[in-house]
Design a binder for these strands. Structure first.
Lengths: 337, 337
DNA sequence: AGCCTGGGTTGAATCGATTCGACCACGAGG
DNA sequence: CCTCGTGGTCGAATCGATTCAACCCAGGCT
């Protein structure tokens, strides 16, 4: 069933039906009603491909997610969900591409097959092949996260550096002298994963500013890895009384290891972090943390992308999120020595 | 840059270029190489919309997920990830539709706009509007989960009824006499959510077969709800010594409440469930559970869908998963009275 | 009465592919 | 030498929309 069928049944030309659909030209009321009646009766909806072909836009956004092999963190999931929802609100569909490297077939299809009007990229590295690839293409895109050289690109990101520095200061204020940073996995950091490096920088900065001693360690993105990492930390650095972390997925494991070693949070040991908002509240004990507003960020990423699609030559914009640290129950004054 | 451009540069007709691309007709080797060279040089890729328009298929699958407002459970996330990955392996893209009810705009776009070749539906209710809608349409579809009347539809599902019954038997074997079922949220169950009802049936069956006393309760899909539910349960039914559950998201909360009440798992209290495979292992203590193979199920859903797309009139197939219960550390003999 | 204006409608071109039938040249077979 | 077959190529139709230019006709104005 196509537009011609509607036209025939309504006794008008195809163009008139099109104008009823789009409202781009005046159509007399009787004709309009007649056509609309046929459309309703047959439950007609224009073929999206034909429309996309002619109009040159697909009303679809591409979202590049980490390959499915690795489980999404809560924060990533929050981004995906909010991007999808924001797109749906704008009557846009979302095409998913689970892409790791640069020369991924799915990624190439999306970028070069004109299947989408724009792309949102996640899990950005300081040097990112995919970003480089998109910069060379005419396709508008926005990143959640940013490269080492983010000027010239629209992005949203979390100020991990500043936030972790603030966490360190908070711990210092509470009297902690020996603290640790639990980073993301060693592979991610080695690959130049932005938040990992920026968190490390912020940690170093905070530690030196306050004259603390700090250890940093990498840790896989799951509870078991967290448990192992924390067990090792407690063994090798028994004087550490607090950790800051950007690794939400490891948190349950950290907690478990502390319990196993008889360290009670927050009485004996403080935990503070940067985490998706709901995570922190749902944790036990409720986590003192900078609550990353994944919902807002995803929506903002979509908004920025729509801007770039509407005006590709306009100056790119960005939004660095710096949520305040919500004081909950997982950080407390350092235990007496 | 379109196929005409390539043809012009190579000095051939558009059809010849098309035949090089598709290989559907013989092209002399010199011509083929010349054309291929131009294609490579310009990094040309055919416009997906034009192709879809002509061919009548989009090489895209639709995946209908629960609306973004509610967070995805681990099992749902597992399904999404594996569907996306399986589709990518088959060089198919996945279009996401976050749809709750029947008359969702995004859902309608997908179903009727010919944007996808087929649809995978999740979170199926016993009476499901979306399934009914798709049955009326010519679009092939597969469900993860099944309705009350699943004949005539291709689906994959977990045998919640049988599995929960087995869980009950296992608990009975261990000597537990008073057990509880922690179901999904009251709203879901009230809405006719399949697993909720089937788990309840299996629970009832097991309990009567073994002459146990059983309580069942609904519980929201998050840790706090789980904590509240378990606290209430322990207060109202102090003689309960074990729970079975299909609500993975509530598990951390159940655990917390038990701890708070001084009940140690599994010494004083057993927990057993049906959960995504990785969840169970990552839990603490490692969860005795029927491990739902989300990866296989997503891949199988895609395979079934491809079958239906290839042969829409063939008899629908299905696959009911009945994973064995993996004995881990969360269930043990009932404590002495 | 003739002309102009403009709302309403239509026909035809176009987007970028695929594919069928036709055509051409060349070599084999009678 | 003529015909037939065939590998290789091309032209044109087609998929289902959008949109521009043209046209028609009714009403207002001079």
């Amino acid at each position: 069933m196509n537009i011609g069928e509607i036209a025939r049944r309504a006794g008008v030309s195809r163009s008139t039906v099109s104008y009823v659909l789009s409202g781009k030209r005046a159509v007399s009321e009787p004709t309009r009603q007649r056509i609309q009646a046929v459309i309703d009766e047959l439950d007609y909806r224009p073929n999206a491909n034909a429309r996309a072909l002619k109009e040159g836009r697909t009303r679809t956004l591409g979202l590049v997610i980490p390959p499915a092999s690795q489980r999404l963190t809560d924060m990533q999931l929050g981004f995906v969900a909010s991007v999808v929802e924001a797109a749906a609100r704008a009557d846009l569909d979302v095409l998913l591409s689970p892409s790791g490297g640069d020369h991924d077939r799915s990624f190439e299809r999306i970028v070069t097959g004109r299947r989408v009007d724009g792309v949102i990229l996640m899990e950005i590295r300081l040097e990112d092949d995919r970003v480089a690839r998109l910069r060379r293409s005419p396709l508008p895109f926005v990143t959640i996260g940013r490269t080492a050289e983010p000027a010239g690109t629209s992005w949203v990101d979390v100020d991990y550096e500043g936030l972790i520095a603030r966490c360190v200061h908070h711990l210092a204020d509470l009297g902690h002298r020996h603290i640790a940073l639990v980073n993301r996995s060693a592979e991610l950091v080695a690959a130049g994963y932005g938040p990992g490096h920026r968190a490390l920088a912020g940690f170093g900065q905070g530690v030196t500013e306050r004259g603390l001693t700090g250890v940093d360690l990498c840790c896989g993105d799951d509870a078991s890895a967290g448990e192992a990492a924390m067990t090792r930390l407690l063994a090798t650095h028994p004087d550490v009384t607090a950790v800051a972390t950007i690794n939400e997925a490891a948190l349950p494991g950290l907690q478990r290891a502390l319990e196993a070693e008889g360290r009670q949070v927050p009485r004996d040991f403080s935990v503070i972090g940067v985490a998706a908002a709901h995570w922190a509240e749902d944790f036990h004990p409720p986590l003192t943390a900078a609550d990353v507003p994944t919902l807002d960020m995803g929506a903002e990423a979509v908004a920025l992308l729509l801007e770039r699609i509407a005006a590709p030559t306009a100056a790119p914009r960005h939004h660095l999120y710096r949520p305040p640290i919500s004081l909950r129950a997982s950080a407390a004054p350092a235990p007496p020595r």
